[in-house]
């Protein structure tokens, strides 16, 4: 629920910005008093979403999550040893999008060799190496979450490092 709520906030902010810009343009057209321009930030504003608690995670068992909204499935993984982008007391917790950046198929976790695999076109990604595509068709490595763990062990996602498949803005 919380994810959806945060996403809605994000969407409202986006629409408000757009509406202001339109009003500004209209105001100029009728030579009225100069409207105050809405300055769009250079980067999208990522929501800070709680995804899980450290206590929810077991080594090498994927936990399905979504970020930055419910339409963007992902996974949290506790890998048992420090890895690239890892957070938590052991630096071993990572989060990734699970939509293949090639053609948008869902990725599946192979616990045996700890890879995310695409049944569409055989691509595979290594969550122990920053989501590097081990082999495959995608032209980018797997989008990884920027994670933060607070004092209570709550895991928050606060950003993504590649464009997510199926959207031209990571935050819709």
């Amino acid at each position: 629920m919380r994810c959806r709520k945060m996403a809605e906030i994000g969407r409202r902010q986006f629409l408000r910005g757009g509406a202001l810009a339109t009003a500004g343009a209209a105001a100029v057209a009728v030579s009225g008093p100069e409207a105050r321009a809405a300055v769009a930030p250079a980067r999208v504003a990522y929501p800070a979403n709680r995804l899980a608690n450290i206590a929810d995670l077991t080594v090498n068992e994927p936990l399905d999550v979504a970020y930055p909204d419910d339409d963007a499935p992902g996974v949290l993984l506790k890998l048992g040893h420090p890895v690239e982008g890892g957070v938590g007391p052991e630096g071993d917790v990572v989060g990734f999008s699970t939509i293949c950046p090639h053609k948008g198929y869902p990725l599946f976790y192979n616990a045996e060799d700890r890879t995310l695999n695409c049944p569409g076109h055989f691509s595979r990604f290594d969550p122990e190496a920053g989501g590097q595509q081990v082999w495959g068709q995608a032209t980018q490595n797997l989008p990884q979450y920027v994670l933060r763990v607070d004092d209570d062990g709550e895991i928050h996602a606060e950003g993504v490092d590649e464009l997510l498949y199926g959207r031209l803005s990571n935050v819709l």
Partner: peptide, 18 residues
Amino acid sequence: DLSEQQGAETEAWYAPSM
């Protein structure tokens, strides 16, 4: 409508490499 998530194999998406 590009304000929505597009599905697998969509024509309406391109990667940064494109």
